[in-house]
């Protein structure tokens, strides 16, 4: 078993046995959507679709922050991080495994949020909802890549929980703009080709941040 799959398997096994992260992420996404429905009281039609797309991405940002923090900070308990760092495990492989775990948890939470969004914003379960998938998956990957790197920093600082959103949210802005635009177009029934430019921005963002995290993780991984 490669080091990558060993760490990922451990994280997934922990999740299957305990199931805390996905439940917490799903619950947080639910709350964000409910709060945004109260805040904007969206009507139906085109405006409703735009509000729904925005709400979905706010939920993604919040659940992503929680997911990455949990994937990294779980290792800080009981000195697990020390054991991982002492093992002959490449730091980059550790990053890839943590990123994959955060991405999977976020993906599950996103699937739940999409269903809840359709219900709360009075949309239909049809092809339009399926067209959300590429943008949301790319966004989740980008945010997981960014937040895993930053969570390794913030989990080792006193008061670090504050630093994570302060750094992650402005850095995520390009993907947020592209994601909201692509999602709104998808929900409004526009063909996927129309959002190609936004999907390209998302792909570029993902490539850049996965590469940056992969290269830079070794400088931030360490003990508390």
């Amino acid at each position: 078993m490669s080091p990558f799959s060993a760490v990922l398997r451990k994280d997934l096994l922990l999740e299957v046995r305990g199931g805390q992260s996905t439940v917490a992420l799903g619950a947080l996404s639910l709350l964000v959507l409910v709060v945004l429905v109260f805040a904007f009281n969206p009507g139906g039609g085109e405006q409703g679709a735009e509000a729904a797309a925005g709400a979905l991405w706010v939920a993604l940002v919040f659940s992503g922050m929680l997911g990455a923090t949990r994937a990294v900070s779980a290792e800080n308990e009981n000195g697990c991080m020390r054991a991982l760092l002492m093992s002959p495990l490449d730091r980059a492989a550790l990053y890839a495994a943590k990123l994959a775990a955060a991405f999977i948890f976020m993906g599950i939470a996103e699937a739940a949020s999409i269903i809840l969004m359709v219900l709360f914003f009075n949309l239909e379960f049809d092809a339009r909802v399926m067209r959300l998938v590429p943008a949301v998956l790319l966004g989740a990957l980008g945010f997981a890549a960014l937040a895993t790197l930053l969570a390794a920093i913030s989990s080792r600082l006193r008061g670090g929980d504050l630093v994570l959103p302060l750094l992650a949210v402005p850095m995520f802005v390009p993907a947020l703009i592209a994601g909201v635009k692509a999602s709104a177009a998808a929900l409004a029934g526009a063909p996927l080709a129309g959002s190609a430019v936004w999907l390209k921005v998302l792909v570029a963002f993902d490539v850049m941040f996965v590469a940056a995290g992969y290269l830079l993780f070794e400088y931030v991984a360490g003990e508390e």
Binding site: A178, V201, M208, L216, Y219
Partner: peptide
């Protein structure tokens, strides 16, 4: 540690700037 974290964040922020410019312009 703070110096290392600062260096990483400074680099990542600089990587972010071109794509911020592109996306905001679009």
């Amino acid at each position: 540690q703070g110096a290392r974290f600062g260096a990483v964040v400074g680099i990542v922020a600089a990587i972010d700037v071109p794509i911020v410019i592109v996306s905001v312009r679009l």
